[in-house]
Amino acid sequence: MVRDLFMFAGLNERSQIVWFKIIYSKEPGSLSSIINFLEKENAFIMFGHLDNITQKTGEYSVFIELDKNIDPEDFARKIKELDVVSEVEYGISKYRMIYSADFPLNVVGVRGVAARALTIVDIIKTLNQNVPHAEGLLTMSGLKGGIHSAKYFKSILNLNDSNFADVLAELYRAVGWGILEIECDPKTYQGKIIVKDSFIADVYGGSDQPVCAFMSGYFAGYLTDYFGKNISVREVSCKATGKNVCEHIISPAPSGGTGQEYQLRGETR
């Protein structure tokens, strides 16, 4: 996930933003010694995250505001001199824009990018205005993404009936797509998903029809792969049409065709 992604607004000519990726030995008090060193050096920690790489080593990625007169390379060397530290990488966010301690970004097991919601919505609008059956194509695109996410989570987690909904909700919040409330019976494959603050609906503007077909497809793909049964998801209420939230209905896909064929025919409304 993009845990090490951040944005620093504004420019302070007296300071610089520097990120450090620190590999350290997981001994008692090791992380405390790193943090104590940073505080002693008057390094203002703006954002950081931990990643336990192995049982013996950990990774501490941290964004720090330093005085502009401090040499980041020299500062990195001092960090590496700590007994508990084995490796240090660093980089400078010169203009305080989005920066990451890892490149390329990794989101749900594959390369990810940071994009403005408006950019994605412009693509959706262009398809809706110029491509026949655009809704079905958007649903299919979402379907593939949802399938991939479920496969990835099953490979790293014990995905089960008690957590499959929570995992999906946490993913949506983490990548900024929306806040989910999910009700889905794993026995009947029926339920609904409420999306608050959908990035598509919020940015799309007013519309006579629901506009979150991509999300419907994503939900369908995720649930289809998890349940091992073709699942249909259709948006019945959308914030873009003036509603307070977006609502997607979950149900088993009709028999007589594959889930993808059903979605592509545009029968999700």
Rank of each mutant, 00 (worst) to 15 (best):
E87M: 10
R173W: 03
V88C: 03
C184P: 02
W177V: 00
I193W: 09
D185G: 15
D197C: 06
V167I: 10
V108K: 04
Y172R: 00
Y189N: 14
N128W: 05
P132C: 12
V108C: 09
L143I: 11
K80T: 04
P186W: 06
G109E: 05
S141G: 11
L82N: 05
C184K: 03
K94V: 15
T139G: 13
K196H: 15
N106W: 05
K196I: 07
K154E: 13
F103I: 06
N106T: 10
Y90I: 11
G176Y: 00
D122T: 08
V175A: 05
L143F: 14
I147Y: 03
A115R: 06
G176D: 07
V85T: 03
G146E: 01
E183G: 14
D122L: 09
S141I: 14
V131L: 08
V110G: 06
V175G: 06
N158T: 09
V88M: 01
H148W: 15
A114T: 07
E73D: 14
A174T: 10
I156P: 05
I92K: 09
P72Q: 13
G176V: 02
F75P: 00
I182H: 07
V110A: 03
D122C: 05
A115F: 09
P104V: 11
A115D: 04
L105D: 00
N128D: 09
R173G: 00
V107F: 14
K80A: 07
E181Y: 12
G176W: 01
V107T: 07
N160F: 04
A150V: 02
T188Q: 13
G112K: 00
E181W: 10
V113N: 06
H133W: 12
S86C: 03
E181G: 11
L138F: 13
T139D: 13
I123S: 14
I182Y: 04
Y152I: 11
A101R: 01
L118E: 06
P186V: 10
K151F: 04
L138I: 15
K151Y: 09
L157K: 02
G176F: 07
M140Y: 11
W177C: 00
P104G: 06
V110S: 08
V121I: 15
G178Y: 01
Y189D: 15
E89P: 00
P104K: 09
V84M: 11
K94N: 06
S155P: 12
F164T: 02
E181V: 13
E87K: 10
F103M: 14
A117C: 08
G146V: 09
V195L: 13
V110D: 04
G136L: 12
L159H: 00
I156N: 14
I124Q: 00
D197F: 13
I79K: 02
A174H: 07
T119G: 07
V88W: 03
K144R: 13
G191A: 02
I194T: 10
S93P: 01
Q129M: 10
L138N: 02
A150S: 13
K94E: 15
P186Y: 10
Q129R: 11
V195N: 05
K151D: 05
I120R: 05
M140W: 09
L118Q: 15
Y99H: 03
I194H: 02
V113T: 14
N106A: 15
L137I: 06
F75M: 14
V131Q: 06
V195Y: 03
D185A: 12
V195I: 13
I156A: 13
L168Y: 01
S155Y: 04
G136S: 11
D166I: 06
L138V: 08
T119P: 02
